[in-house]
């Protein structure tokens, strides 16, 4: 039992419902037996449930949020359609963070239906990553993130810290922050509904996708705290009205923040790093 937050042992036991790659810790969901029950016959009665369909996920998401906070980990859930540049932005972000805040612990949880290609790209930057393959699933859920987080060195980092100092992390000291990025399955619909325990959802929208995406997929932009317009180096070549796009996003989410950047040229990356580090005291 962890003395910091009361979670289980550092590291992890067998993953529920997933096949674990022993070498990398990657998780593969979507290969379980169907359950079967035997029907009976008798008198009818009514049971009032009033139960939130996503209640089980929400309970785990709430536990994740408390767990991240106890470990000093700020967590960002990156959501977008496939091909908007999530992994490219992440790689550029990790490199830039390394230069700006070299002592800041970083980690990534990569969600895809299949393959470990994205986690391999992240690991090539030197940052620890766990790939979660959802099988047929169209989104990450909170239990998947809990399993993946338990397999990241960030988890041990928080534990070591707690053991050395022997005090709780919620005592007002903002020391030793860490950043965890969760790259959700590329999908502008489903990830909007599943809370993973993140501090903020960040919606990416590349200029090649069209400026009316916030109106076409309002749930996702309504759930996001920040919209990042990516691939801005391509703006001269496409019909993408930035002001119109921002206006559309604000229609479905009046409070949404907006940043523009190009991971390729690096323009706009500084403001993105400022946003990520706001509230987290970055060690020099």
């Amino acid at each position: 039992m962890c003395v910091v937050c009361g979670c289980g042992q550092p590291g992890a036991g067998p993953a529920v419902g997933a096949v674990v790659n022993a070498a990398t810790g990657d998780l593969h969901y979507g290969a379980g037996p169907a359950r079967v029950s035997v029907p009976g016959m008798s008198a009818e009665r009514t049971i009032r449930l009033e139960a939130d369909v996503l209640g089980a996920n929400q309970a785990v998401a709430d536990a994740n949020r408390a767990h991240f906070a106890a470990h000093g980990v700020r967590t960002f859930n990156l959501v977008s359609s496939p091909g908007s540049g999530k992994t490219t932005l992440l790689c550029a972000t990790l490199d830039a963070l390394r230069r700006r805040a070299s002592a800041l612990p970083l980690a990534v949880i990569e969600g895809d239906q299949q393959t470990c290609r994205d986690a391999d790209r992240i690991r090539a930057t030197g940052v620890p990553a766990i790939q979660v393959n959802t099988g047929k699933g169209c989104h990450l859920d909170a239990p998947m993130v809990a399993e993946a987080f338990a397999r990241l060195p960030l988890h041990d980092h928080g534990h070591r810290h707690g053991h050395h100092h022997g005090h709780a992390h919620d005592d007002g000291h903002a020391h030793d922050p860490a950043l965890l990025f969760i790259e959700n399955v590329g999908n502008l619909v489903c990830p909007a509904l599943w809370d993973l325990g993140e501090d903020a959802k960040v919606a990416l929208l590349s200029v090649t996708e069209g400026d009316d995406k916030p109106l076409k997929y309002p749930d996702l932009f309504a759930a996001a705290r920040l919209m990042v317009i990516t691939k801005t180096d391509l703006l001269p070549h496409v019909d993408f009205d930035v002001a119109q796009c921002i206006g559309y996003a604000q229609r479905v989410n009046p409070g949404i923040e907006v940043l523009l950047l190009s991971a390729k040229t690096g323009i706009g990356l500084d403001a993105w790093l400022d946003w990520l580090l706001a509230g987290a005291e970055a060690p020099a």
Partner: peptide, 12 residues
């Protein structure tokens, strides 16, 4: 904005 299971009519 809620998605809930409200009620079940069940048989034993």
């Amino acid at each position: 904005s809620a998605l809930r299971v409200v009620e079940l009519l069940v048989a034993d």
